[in-house]
Design a protein around this nucleic acid. Structure first.
Lengths: 356, 356
DNA sequence: GCATTTCTGAGGAACGTACCTCATTTTTTG
DNA sequence: CAAAAAATGAGGTACGTTCCTCAGAAATGC
């Protein structure tokens, strides 16, 4: 049997009330007594029964997931994954609220963040570019004791409690090897496209990609990055121009989430199968492109995993509990047509036997 | 606030005791009353608080993980992963026992399985080849109400409650594409090695591999499978012979867990870098081989994930709860030198702040 | 319609923890 | 050394559930 608070009280020779005071950091206990209790805890290997504790507290973890209001398929899928994970997590007393902010307005985001403490939130996950305004807002929230974790794109200077997402430099490197090995010896040119060179994840991916290409595949000529600023029109325009100007393009690396416009372009120019295309994020649309051959490989992260990890991390941070790092390390997944995971069943209603 | 049993009693116009009888399937309640209670449950959207229920029950989930006693690095790593997951899961009242059986003796395994019901087990995960004896033993245990899940290698005809592991045919296909694409147009020969053609997972992998090779890479000549029966000596012998007899081997697909002997052989024959080697399972040893270049790519599954999934599934089955299928789908991971995940910290003792 | 069986209700104890109050002891301070 | 302050103990209630007993009500058999 696991030891309980009563056992500790007995072992430490103090009363239950004192153990409780120590355990919950309540004032009015002498240092000497505190260490006596802690020693008893260590001796007995006591681990607090969090389920019972939460039951007693009547606690629920109100947490926020804050995403930009862009309607990209990736953000949408992420929102869905979070919502699903959140609804399944009511069992573990997690109350997840999805909040959105105008993608181009860091001040509104800052205001949103600042309002969290008054509303009983015990944690927040944030997907946003790191501007000074945002950075300060994050610092403010954290200083009020609310943990903040960065989602998908890291915020290295905001001092977040954790980063939930993949190592983007490693992801870029992976894209590099695949590109290099799939293309064989070369020679040829490679187009690189991304939303913006200001976003952290883009920069990291490009760096990783270049690292591998320069070192291992010197015959492949990686052209300067093209920026789309999230616009299909711009993408079409810049890529078309680059293709026209470059005689021997044999690969395209799309660093952002897979662009619908890119697939379209590949179709229009009949490039499918003749050119190796690697992109990120397995959205429904990229799935199709993979199956039909416009896209050769996808570097992705499992959004369900990401969402559940977010919730676990927020909960652990709120409880001041240590993380199981190996569980929270989001894997970089490589998806080819052949290992395309079967589409899971649609969410569906809670079956009746839920409470059986 | 979530509704509680008291709310249901009020809503259904019955007493708490009756609600409890219905909820826990205890006898002595009229059909009519049962449905009245169930309707109230549905109306209020009641979901039992499992944490409170388990607390009241004083329940712990005693489950078994049954592995062969082979000392392969894969099985060893799996055992470690299970042990780690198990010790972290004491928080959720899971009491995992690791049991081993002599790899070549299905009768001992059957006896072990048969002994589970008397020992208070509420579930078991089993990694074993599917022989008739084992199949019947599994059926017997399940008929006693103890759920059994297959681990790593499926037991399709034993009627297990679940299979925790990857889709091996898809894994074989993935190995196929990688081999094909890495080797380019060919021509050349490919050696395929595996433990035994009787093991289900080997058969599935070979089928998937052939499917892709025949369809997409007809210039590559896949030679008949070689069997090692788990012996390093045999491996060395058969592969050496095959290499001597085949003029143009450019790839090796090792279907079992990465063989230390294979790496050794590649080194001895100075094949590293000149031949594409794909194998399964990212054991410590395969990690090194990947870093040093003897192995080109590894198809693997995350053992931590596998272990945690096993525990979640067993717990859900013991509770008759539905699974979150998408969470339990183990992904087929492709590991290259470039996306080699950072080795997580050694397990280490429980930090002091565990109970903070 | 009366005995018998089957249902139902009321209540309590327990699980391990949190959190509260009040009384008592111990320590500190002047 | 007394008074004030600080530390500790004792005890209770609560969280949402399980599981038990016993009394009383309702349905059933003859």
């Amino acid at each position: 049997m696991r030891p309980t608070v009563t056992d500790i009280a007995r072992e430490a020779g103090v009363s239950l009330a004192t153990v409780d005071r120590v355990l919950n950091g309540r004032p009015g206990v002498r240092e000497k007594t505190i260490s006596a209790v802690n020693e008893a805890i260590a001796r007995l290997g006591y681990v607090r029964d969090l389920a019972a504790a939460n039951l007693a507290r009547g606690r629920s973890y109100k947490v926020a997931a804050i995403l930009p209001d862009t309607e990209s398929q990736f953000v949408q899928s992420l929102a869905d994954a979070l919502a699903t994970a959140g609804s399944l997590a009511v069992t573990s007393r997690i109350d997840l609220r999805l909040l959105r902010f105008p993608a181009e307005d860091p001040h509104q985001l800052a205001a949103l963040l600042a309002s969290l403490p008054h509303q009983g939130y015990v944690g927040a996950a944030l997907m946003a570019p790191e501007t000074p305004v945002v950075r300060d807002a994050v610092r403010l929230v954290r200083s009020k004791g609310i943990p903040v974790v960065a989602l998908v794109s890291n915020l290295p200077n905001a001092g977040c409690d954790h980063f939930v997402g993949i190592d983007n430099t490693a992801a870029g490197r992976t894209a590099g090897v695949l590109m290099g090995r799939f293309l064989g010896a070369g020679p040829g040119q490679i187009i690189v496209v991304g939303q913006s060179l200001l976003a952290r994840d883009m920069v990291d991916r490009r760096r990783g990609f270049d690292e591998v290409m320069l070192r291992d595949f010197p015959n492949l000529d990686v052209l300067p990055s093209l920026e789309t600023h999230g616009s299909s029109g711009t993408l079409r325009e810049v890529v078309t121009r680059r293709l026209a100007n470059s005689p021997n393009v044999i690969g395209i690396y799309s660093m952002g989430d897979g662009h619908r416009a890119l697939t379209q372009l590949i179709d229009d120019m009949k490039l499918s199968g003749r050119i190796t295309v690697i992109c990120h994020e397995l959205t429904p649309h990229v799935r199709t492109a993979l199956q039909q051959g416009q896209v050769t490989a996808v570097i992705t992260q499992n959004l369900g995993h990401l969402a559940r990890s977010t919730l676990r991390v927020l909960r652990a941070k709120a409880d001041n509990q240590p993380l199981d790092e190996s569980q929270e390390q989001i894997r970089i997944e490589i998806v080819l047509r052949e290992n395309l995971p079967i589409l899971p069943d649609p969410p569906g209603p809670t079956p009746d036997d839920q409470i059986a």
